[in-house]
């Protein structure tokens, strides 16, 4: 994504520039919402997560520094952690939230919005090359944030082998994903 870089915008956010935060919001709203939705499965919780994330960006000055890597990766990591946290609180309260119908009116994506169709397609193709057990393991580990012990229990695996299995699945995923990227030539 070109434009003013995310990192430059974040510099301005640190100095209380609301417009800069709004620009970051516009860029990432859709990606973060989609990603959050994939983890928490309800629109309400996804929105709560996004609010928490932007609250952190706005209030916790210095939460991001360049040594944490790309701003987008950092933002996605924070979003994932926030979602997993909400998910845990949710299950602790034993409340099952039913999702209201998502307002699916199609808003136009502006040039400023981060889009990821091509990446998603490549990733989905890569995922389809994993065995169904590997797919489930990735889902439990990454999108549900389960502990190794939980994964071992759910998949009936010896605890000591869980890490190796996740790593193998992710390495394979990444390899296929990158090969397909090369083929497309981007």
């Amino acid at each position: 994504m070109g434009r003013i870089s995310d990192e430059e915008l974040y510099e301005l956010v640190q100095a209380d520039n609301k417009e800069a935060l709004e620009q970051l919001y516009d860029r990432y709203e859709k990606l973060l919402f989609s990603f959050s939705y994939k983890i928490v499965n309800t629109s309400d919780l996804a929105e709560e997560a996004i609010q928490d994330v932007f609250m952190k960006l706005w209030r916790k000055k210095g939460i991001y520094t360049a040594d944490k890597g790309k701003f987008s990766s950092f933002l996605l990591t924070v979003t994932r952690n926030t979602c997993l946290d909400l998910l845990r609180k949710q299950s602790k309260n034993q409340v099952e939230l039913l999702d209201k119908d998502l307002e699916r009116e199609q808003t136009e994506s502006t040039e400023e919005t981060v889009t990821w169709n091509e990446e998603r397609q490549r990733l989905q193709e890569a995922v389809s090359t994993l065995s169904s057990e590997q797919q489930e393991i990735v889902q439990l580990f990454y999108f549900k944030g389960c502990s190794q012990a939980t994964i071992a229990e759910k998949k009936d695996l010896p605890l000591g082998t869980v890490k190796g299995r996740i790593r193998l699945a992710l390495q394979h995923l990444r390899k296929v994903y990158e090969e397909r990227g090369d083929r497309i030539g981007t």
């Binding site: 990603f35 996004i50 609010q51 932007f54 996605l76 307002e103 998603r120 990733l123 995922v127 990454y142």
Partner: peptide
């Protein structure tokens, strides 16, 4: 790369206003 596996979902139109109003 894993976050990019997420299906593209359009957020509620009013979400931006709610979130930014609360944050600010």
């Amino acid at each position: 790369p894993l976050p990019y596996l997420s299906e593209d979902i359009t957020p509620p139109a009013s979400m931006k206003k709610r979130v930014l109003t609360n944050v600010f």
